[in-house]
Amino acid sequence: MSHITRNQPLGTPTWIDLGIPDLDRAMEFYGTLFGWTFEVGPEEYGRYTQCLLDGRRAAALAPNPDPSATGFWWSVYLATDDLDATVARSLEAGGTVVGGPFDIPEQGRGALLRDTVGAQFGLWQGSAHVGCEVVNEPGALIRNDLVTPTPEPAREFYAAVFDFTLEDNKDMPGVDFTFLRRPDGHEVGGIFGNPAAHGSTWNTVFEVADTDEAVRRARDAGGKSDEASDMLYGRIASMSDPFGTEFSVITRATG
């Protein structure tokens, strides 16, 4: 369990949000699945809605402003204490700016970028809003991994921008998975090379107390889910919400 009260170090996944066509339907689904409650924002901020777990910020939802949109995904924002400098480093490493930089008065500054393999991610320099206030417990974010058919350019990009060190996963021989570690050695995520992947995307994983129960809840609430399965780090399932947004849930292995 982790309760966050200050800005995270450079490159740490610090915030997630999702734009969907029906905010009320999304709140119903994610409230059922994770036990979230919601603070709906004012119209002037696009009804940007804070998702709360026991009163702490866990994520955000917002109505998607594009009526023709058909694809939806959880956006991950990586922490920075100097947004402009990190944007500049991203551009130098071959990335592109998708949106921003933008200022949220008193809350912080952000930007949306695309890396060298086409995956979109965000940057967040927090002020009053430090990002997720709760992680690594049931109902909260536990990790983000980049899935791509072309992992080598991605490894080079993220190491250059965020000073990550790269480490092979020796526990899973035969799997092209690279740990991303901050200079202090803390693991912040990974890059999964999957030749069968259709494009490159950051995958979001939430912790749950019981993966099989989460599968049932997701299906009952109008989502879709694969059957739960066991892997090295716990019991996991891939699922999607009623709008087709894909994500995963995991119950961590003990011992």
Rank of each mutant, 00 (worst) to 15 (best):
V117W: 12
K224S: 12
L166P: 11
D115E: 07
E39D: 14
G122N: 05
P21Y: 13
P183M: 01
R219C: 01
G41Q: 11
L123D: 00
S90I: 07
G244R: 07
E213R: 15
T14N: 14
F29K: 12
A197R: 05
D54E: 15
L52W: 13
L146S: 06
I236R: 00
P151V: 10
H3M: 02
L232Q: 02
F177S: 01
G35D: 13
A209R: 04
L123M: 01
P153E: 04
A218W: 12
D184W: 05
L10P: 00
S225L: 02
P242G: 06
W15N: 01
F177N: 00
R89Y: 06
L52T: 12
V98Y: 12
G118I: 06
V87M: 08
P67L: 15
D171P: 04
E246K: 14
G108F: 07
A154Q: 02
M27P: 07
P101M: 08
V134D: 01
G126N: 06
W202P: 02
M1T: 03
G255P: 00
E43D: 15
V87F: 01
L18G: 04
A88E: 14
Y45G: 04
G234N: 06
D82K: 11
I4S: 05
A154P: 03
N136K: 04
P149I: 05
G131T: 03
E43P: 04
L166D: 09
L232W: 05
P242T: 04
G35V: 12
V87H: 05
E152Y: 03
E92N: 13
D24V: 10
Q120R: 09
R6W: 00
